[in-house]
């Protein structure tokens, strides 16, 4: 299998702090990759370099062989990278369906159309996407009325609108109730499998990580300290020491 995403020697410092230090990894098609680490490990910094919000000091990020470093976020999106936010960002003055339609309008390069009626464009495609995340019943509701968990699902539909090869999800379950977390990630995993999208996500909830990730990368103080399947990560003594800290947390996570 060819790598969808190839990250090589990515580095970023803030002042004297090496927030991300020589991180390299690759991602295959259809792979569900979790990026974990304690607070301040460099997950978010790493993420923001992948999606273009932050310019790295060095290294390379290639999507299907194409260099992404130096491109603004909107260009990276056009090349086929979707994303969801840690704190949801949606267009609150529009309906749920219109939110998805906006992504479709942009994908079809019609954002400078001054004449058509936006709300009538790509309705079927938008409804199909909402169906995918089980949100079609709420399609006509104003986005400002949605519950937080529904906003998260809406974001997923938006992120899938331009049929991305790669989906970046920054703490997709942050701020959700435990039962919702499992449901959202099960949904995501299902879609990933069906569509062959590759996903990189960061996550604090170990239940979610061990339940769904095909492979796990562990960051600590900006460095990649371990990589492997759930089992391998559980057994890795380095990870236990610097990240999971003590046996009790580790045991708990294993049984979940």
């Amino acid at each position: 299998m060819s790598a969808v995403l190839a990250v090589d020697a990515l580095a970023k410092s803030f002042g004297g702090v090496h927030a991300v230090d020589d991180v390299s990894f690759s991602l295959d098609k259809g792979e569900f990759l979790a990026l974990i680490g304690p607070n301040g490990a460099g997950k978010t910094t790493c993420f923001n370099m992948l999606n273009g919000y932050l310019k790295p000091d060095g290294g390379s990020v290639k999507l299907n062989g194409r260099e992404l470093i130096g491109l603004p976020p909107r260009r990276i999106w056009r090349l086929g990278v979707g994303r969801t936010f840690q704190i949801t960002a949606t267009f609150l003055s529009m309906t749920v369906r219109e939110n998805v339609q906006m992504a479709l309008i942009s994908h079809h390069r019609r954002i400078y159309d001054l004449f058509s009626r936006a709300t009538r464009l790509y309705v079927d495609e938008a409804m199909a996407l909402l169906d995918l995340v089980s949100m079609s019943e709420q399609a006509e509701r104003p986005c400002s009325e949605l519950a937080y968990g529904d906003l998260k699902r809406l974001e997923l539909a938006i992120a899938l609108a331009h049929e991305p090869d790669l989906l970046l999800m920054d703490e997709p379950t942050a701020g959700m109730a435990p039962s919702e977390r499992i449901a959202l990630m099960a949904l995501t995993a299902g879609i990933v499998e069906k569509r062959g999208v590759s996903v990189v996500f960061t996550e604090h909830d170990m239940d979610v990580v061990f339940a769904h990730a095909h492979r796990i990368l562990v960051l600590n103080r900006g460095q990649l300290i371990a990589e492997g399947t759930g089992d391998q990560i559980r057994k890795n003594p380095l990870v236990q020491e610097v990240y999971l800290g003590g046996g009790s947390v580790f045991e708990g996570a294993g049984h979940a």
Binding site: N51, P72, P73, R74, W77, R83, F85, A89, T90, F91, L92, S93, M94, E98, M102, I105, S106, R110, I111, Y112, D113, L114, F115, S116, R117, A118, T119, L121, I158
Partner: peptide, 19 residues
């Protein structure tokens, strides 16, 4: 129109519009 909707989108959430 799509132009106006996107303009409103930028007002609502610049980060989402960029994304």
């Amino acid at each position: 129109s799509p132009f106006g909707y996107v303009l409103r989108g930028v007002r609502d959430s610049r980060i989402r519009a960029e994304a």
